[in-house]
Design a protein around this nucleic acid. Structure first.
Length: 732
DNA sequence: AGCACGCCGACT
DNA sequence: GTCGGCGTGCTC
């Protein structure tokens, strides 16, 4: 705060939602009090916005006092804690985004900044009404049961079967007095001793280790790696219990909270109460109350999607990032970040532990664990009768499908057998729609998207050609738009609709359910379908990625992957890792309840390292190889590529001031960084694509990597898309 | 980011 | 004659 001695006007720095790199200054009236962390409402141009008061920048140039506008309102809200303010600053710097935009993510519940208005209630005074009617007698009897109890007017009326006017009458006679009932907590307090589990073997050791780590209350990162069915969740629940026992708040991040009812139920079984939810589909009223009660420290545990990382906890003492490898943790618009990485940062700044949990960790997390930077806990066995399925590759060259089909005889046979046993099969193909490519047999014309030049995917059910990149869609024409020939359009390759068609032709009497994100009816319908499957109301499930997560299907004993190679050859440096993770997850759907189960993977390259790793179950060897490839420059090296690009980008930012960035800066020849996979790249500013000078530091192998990328680029048009993954620890 | 202002095309 | 496209510029 700066005191203007002449006018006695207090000036304070406030982060407002603009792309400005610095906070704005506002005037604070004498009757207002606000310091760093206070949440305020201020005028900004023609509108009112919420802002966050921060420390003044030491070298801030004073602003023309004539421009100063007054703070409209200081909210009655606990201030944002100092470690949270540092976190905002850190994230802004790291992601090269404006601090005000990061602050905006924290202040995302615009009506929650004032205390929840208490509800009006009534309580018995002890006086008896002089005249006792029948209705009044019923009310008095009810009240006599618990004389101290506070009621709402309608609540008491409802409970006793009278109208509210009876209650109002009694209130007038001084039988009741009006009181204010404090806002009711959004969730009950979790009880660490509610449903203590019986942990066995290494589960107990790991749980004890985690609890000890939590009790230390200092920064650490632990990788909790456990195969599906090993009891990972139960084990980290013990860490949560330890944090609750210490009076700390806990944040559990989940990739897609809207779909994970299962998690809430398991939490309830363990702690006797659900955690407070946080995700983008939350009803505004609920969102508001959760925000408020988190910042007041009333809510003990939050289970949320990535945006929950920006909740202003009062007293956070543990963060758990479940399925830490999941790509849903990446935010790729506005402020670019990976919530897993930022969770590590937040825990570091706050001085408490974070646990990263996964059956198939990301390569960088695995590497950090192996190098000893992270603690490393493993659960290698399945428990509770769950056995890993027997996995086999089906070599499509040796066991090809029928002409025009995509399912090999071996897989059809396995489905037949499963059907005969009265058990369920899952066919997995990670491609929505009917066919990924349509072409004209007469002239060879391919249907491409006019915006993105990607192939248009036929959705036969909707009778449309759809671009899966931008959403553009058009009707399937009857003739070729290029040569005009009728009836010569041909669908190439399979999507799940087509697999469903083929499956139906083999098993016309089976009950088949198709699950994909373009199913009509949204999340609700999806949940219903999942429940139906779990209850055994389907024989064959055909689905995309959606089926890889969430629900357990107790009767599912066969998983067939239609195209295991899909995703291996798309130029993404993480292709192998992603495919490995997805295939582990999908095949892990089978045999969760002890029945003998199989996973069959159709592939054209059974010798591929990913396929080998999946079939053999030798994860360690797979990770070794991935780490090795990165270190040899075949993949982005940990942190270093990113840090170089950051430094280049930061320099550009400095040089820029206004418009320099528009005319691209010099560059290592032909390299263009189109956009960040996550944080750091400068492009963030607007829609421009930035050319980055990668100045060759001989200690790194960036140039080798980029050269390799360029040489491999399928259409070398002078640019190459580079995806960046960053290890935040190298910046801490 | 959000919003206003401003200048050119098809329409109540 | 107006509605509406998005280009440009500004916000303490």
């Amino acid at each position: 705060m700066v005191n203007d001695s002449k006018n006695k006007i207090k000036t304070i720095s406030i982060l407002v939602p603009t792309p400005s790199p610095v906070p704005y200054s506002y005037a604070l009236r004498a009757d207002q009090t606000a310091g760093p962390g206070s949440i305020v409402q201020v005028p900004l141009g023609p509108r009112q916005v919420s802002g966050l008061v921060v420390e003044d920048l030491p070298d801030a140039k004073p602003i023309d006092p004539a421009k100063l506008r007054e703070v409209t309102q200081v909210f009655d809200c606990p201030p944002i804690t100092p470690d949270m303010l540092r976190f905002i600053d850190w994230v802004a710097k790291y992601t090269l985004s404006a601090p005000g935009m990061v602050a905006r993510m924290v202040l995302r519940s615009p009506t929650a900044f004032d205390p929840e208005p208490p509800t009006k209630g009534i309580v018995a005074t002890g006086t008896q009404p002089e005249r006792l009617t029948d209705a009044r007698r019923r009310v008095m009897e009810q009240v006599a049961e618990e004389p101290q109890m506070a009621w709402t007017r309608s609540g008491l009326a409802h409970a006793t079967g009278v109208t509210t006017s009876v209650i109002d009458g009694l209130t007038k006679l001084n039988v009741f007095s009006e009181i204010e009932i404090p806002a009711r907590p959004i969730v009950a307090k979790p009880d660490p001793s509610f449903g203590e589990p019986e942990l066995i073997g290494d589960q107990r050791d790991v749980a004890e280790g985690l609890a000890a780590t939590v009790s230390e209350q200092k920064f650490s990162v632990t990788l909790l790696e456990g195969v599906t069915g090993s009891g990972k969740t139960e084990v980290y629940f013990e860490a949560i219990a330890a944090a609750i026992n210490q009076g700390k708040q806990v944040l559990v991040l989940l990739p897609e909270i809207a779909l994970t009812q299962v998690f809430l139920e398991r939490f309830h079984d363990r702690f006797g109460a659900e955690p407070a939810p946080w995700h983008s589909d939350l009803a505004p009223r609920t969102r508001e109350r959760v925000w408020r009660q988190v910042t007041e420290g009333q809510v003990q545990v939050v289970a949320g999607a990535r945006s929950a990382l920006y909740l202003p906890f009062q007293n956070l003492g543990l963060i758990i990032v479940d399925e830490e490898h999941d790509a849903a943790y990446k935010q790729e618009d506005r402020v670019f970040y990976n919530a897993r990485d930022m969770a590590v940062v937040r825990a570091h700044l706050g001085g408490y532990p974070v646990i990263l949990a996964s059956a198939t960790p990301s390569v960088e997390t695995r590497h950090n664990a192996q190098e000893g930077r992270y603690k490393y806990e493993r659960l290698d066995k399945r428990y509770a009768d769950a056995a890993l399925p027997t996995l086999k590759a089906i070599d499509m060259r040796k066991s090809p499908p029928q002409r025009g089909g995509f399912i090999s005889p071996a897989l059809i046979e396995a489905m037949q057998e499963t059907l005969e046993r009265g058990e369920q099969s899952l066919l997995f193909l990670n491609r929505r729609g009917y066919a990924p490519l349509t072409l004209c047999r007469a002239c060879g014309h391919r249907f491409e998207c006019s915006n993105c030049s990607a192939w248009l995917v036929e959705h036969r059910f909707r009778k449309q050609l759809v671009c899966h990149h931008c959403g553009h869609n058009e009707h399937v024409p009857e003739s070729c738009p290029e040569c005009g020939t009728f009836d010569h359009l041909v669908a190439c390759g399979p999507g799940i609709e087509r697999i469903a068609e083929e499956t139906l032709s083999h098993f016309p009497d089976a009950r088949i359910i198709v699950l994909s994100s373009d199913m009509t009816g949204g999340v609700k319908r999806l949940r219903l379908e999942m429940d139906a499957i779990a209850k055994g109301e389907a024989d064959i499930v055909i689905g995309t990625q959606l089926v890889a997560k969430g629900h357990n299907f107790p009767n599912m004993t066969m998983v067939g992957v239609v195209d295991s190679d899909l995703g291996l050859a798309n130029g993404d440096p993480r292709a192998a890792e992603r495919t490995f993770q997805l295939l582990s997850q999908v095949t892990g759907r089978a045999g969760r309840t002890g029945k003998k189960s199989v996973g069959l993977l159709q592939t054209f390259q059974p010798e591929h390292p990913v396929m080998q790793a999946i079939i053999s179950g030798d994860m360690d060897a797979f990770y070794e190889k991935q780490i090795d490839e990165r270190e040899r420059g075949k993949m982005p090296p940990f942190g270093r590529l990113a840090s170089l690009i950051i430094s280049a980008a930061t320099r550009l930012e400095a040089e820029q001031h206004g418009r320099a960035l528009r005319g691209a800066a010099p560059i290592a020849k032909d390299v263009m960084v189109l956009g960040p996979a996550e944080a750091p790249i400068a492009m963030v500013r607007g829609r421009h694509r930035f050319r980055i000078l990668v100045h060759g530091d001989p200690r790194t192998n960036i140039q080798a990597y980029l050269r390799e990328m360029i040489s491999k680029a399928p259409r070398p048009r002078g640019s190459v898309k580079v995806q960046i993954d960053v290890d935040p620890q190298s910046f801490l």
